[in-house]
Design a protein around this nucleic acid. Structure first.
Lengths: 143, 143
DNA sequence: TTCACACCCTGAAGTTACTATAGAGTCAAG
DNA sequence: CTTGACTCTATAGTAACTTCAGGGTGTGAA
């Protein structure tokens, strides 16, 4: 199986496959006589795994950790549970942040309902006078 | 006012201030005899504005657009309203995406409640066998 | 006066997870 | 034998910064 076919079954681009190989997420496959990458079903499985993790917004670091757990099973899957739990917590935090954000934006939007002059626009005034909060550090992922 | 003081009142790093200047968001200030940047209250206002927009997760492009509207008031603030409305819509979409994500993660987490062996772990099995969905394109911002 | 130390300067590179581009080789069909 | 789709490598670009290297400036204390 060549790279284009693999990319298609895993729903990603050819460039992404090569990128994962360079990143060490996907093992380098055998090559044909003419230097084309040649994949087997184990690559399909692993690439699917990676893409599914990415669809759940896990970082490459998290995926690396999970792949390591698969490759070197250390007895039990407590580590897997912990990783997923932490990831869910990250998602929760981000949802809460965005909800608060949306509320702020709605309040801001309330300040200008009409097509009045820009120099009197309540939105622009609001953006200048908003309290500047200390920016809490962002998490590694989820924007 | 030197750059460190400005950064402090606007709750950002000195490097970020210099970066905004390079990006054209913050006008280049006068310099002292020894080439230190020297800021006035107009810079404080504009940097606060920028940081507040960023706190609302606006992109630099959006902030540029708002700053242009401030600098060259074109009559009414319909454009401001539209920009904010579109931004709220983006936030809404992202919240919906993350909520769905969280649900998927919770379902996944259900598959392994115990400290069983990794090779039987339902989470890892789930991550391998999940349907690989075509990845919808991401928005410019909001992670 | 000289030392330490905090602050400032520039320019370049690193971050994340890719995407895009350039320039070249390979393969199957017509 | 040529056309077009596919593959290869290497490099650069994306967003919004952060970090680093290598230097200059300002001030209080020894």
């Amino acid at each position: 199986m060549k790279i284009g076919e693999l990319a298609q079954v895993a729903q990603c681009s050819v460039e992404t496959v090569r990128y994962y190989e360079k990143e060490g997420l996907l093992p380098a496959p055998a090559r044909t006589a003419t230097n084309y990458r040649s994949y087997g079903s184990e690559h399909v499985d692993r690439l699917r795994f990676i893409r599914n993790c990415r669809a759940l917004d896990m970082t490459h670091g998290e995926i690396h950790a999970l792949l390591d757990l698969i490759d070197r099973p250390a007895g039990n899957c407590g580590a897997v549970n912990q990783l997923v739990d932490e990831h869910i917590a990250h998602v929760d935090v981000r949802i809460a942040e965005l909800s608060q954000l949306k509320q702020q934006l709605r309040e801001l939007r309330q300040r200008c309902q009409s097509e009045q002059a820009v120099d009197a626009c309540g939105i622009l005034q609001g953006l200048t006078s908003m309290a500047t909060e200390p920016r809490h550090e962002r998490h590694t992922h989820l924007g």
